[in-house]
Simulated scan of single mutants.
Amino acid sequence: MIWNLNGLRAAGVAATMLFALPATAAECIAPADPGGGWDFTCREVGRLLAEEGLVDGNVQVTNMPGGVGAVAFANVASKRADDAELLVATSTVGITQIAQGKYPAGTDTMRWIAMLGADVGVIAVAADSHYQTLDDLLAALKEDATSVVTSGSSGAGGWDHIRLLLLAQAAGIEGLDQIRWVQFDGGSPAVTQMMGGQVGLVSTDLGEIKGFVDSGDIRVLAVLSDEPISAFPDLPTAKSQGYDVTGYNWRGFYTGGEVSDEGYNAWVERLKTLYDSEAWQETAKASGLEPIWRGGEEFIAYVAEQEAQMAEISRQIGVIQ
Rank of each mutant, 00 (worst) to 15 (best):
A81H: 03
G318N: 06
V223R: 00
G252C: 04
S129C: 05
V268C: 03
G69Y: 01
S277Y: 01
E307G: 05
Q132W: 10
P31N: 02
I300P: 04
E297R: 14
V122T: 10
G207K: 10
W3P: 10
E258S: 08
M110R: 03
T255G: 11
T255H: 11
M64Y: 04
I179Q: 05
E297V: 12
L138E: 02
A20F: 06
G207W: 06
R251N: 15
R251C: 09
L138K: 03
P31R: 02
R9E: 13
D214Q: 15
H130V: 14
G53N: 04
A222R: 06
S151R: 06
E298K: 09
I218N: 04
V259Q: 04
K142N: 08
T133L: 14
G186H: 05
V61R: 02
Y275S: 01
I317L: 12
W159L: 15
L224E: 00
I173Y: 08
G94M: 09
Q100N: 12
M17Q: 13
Y275D: 04
R9C: 13
M17L: 13
Q281D: 14
G211D: 15
L274S: 00
E44V: 13
M194I: 09
A308M: 12
G35S: 03
V245G: 00
V245I: 09
D160Q: 15
T96H: 10
T90H: 15
I95P: 00
A84H: 05
R219L: 12
W267F: 00
G35H: 01
A10V: 13
V88P: 01
D128P: 08
V13P: 11
A279Q: 11
E44M: 11
T192S: 13
D185A: 13
R315Q: 15
L116N: 07
A168Q: 02
C28N: 06
G296R: 02
S154V: 09
R315D: 08
R43H: 10
V199N: 08
G155Y: 04
L167W: 11
A231Y: 08
W280S: 06
A70T: 00
E52W: 01
A140P: 02
L49M: 02
L176D: 07
V76G: 00
A127E: 12
D214K: 14
A14T: 15
N249F: 04
R47V: 09
A72D: 04
G7R: 05
R80L: 09
L87S: 12
W3I: 13
F184R: 07
L116C: 07
I179D: 05
A190L: 04
S230R: 15
N249W: 05
Q132G: 15
Q321M: 12
L176V: 09
A145P: 08
I229F: 01
E258L: 09
L49F: 00
D276I: 11
V223F: 03
D185E: 14
G200Q: 02
T146Y: 02
G37R: 10
I162P: 11
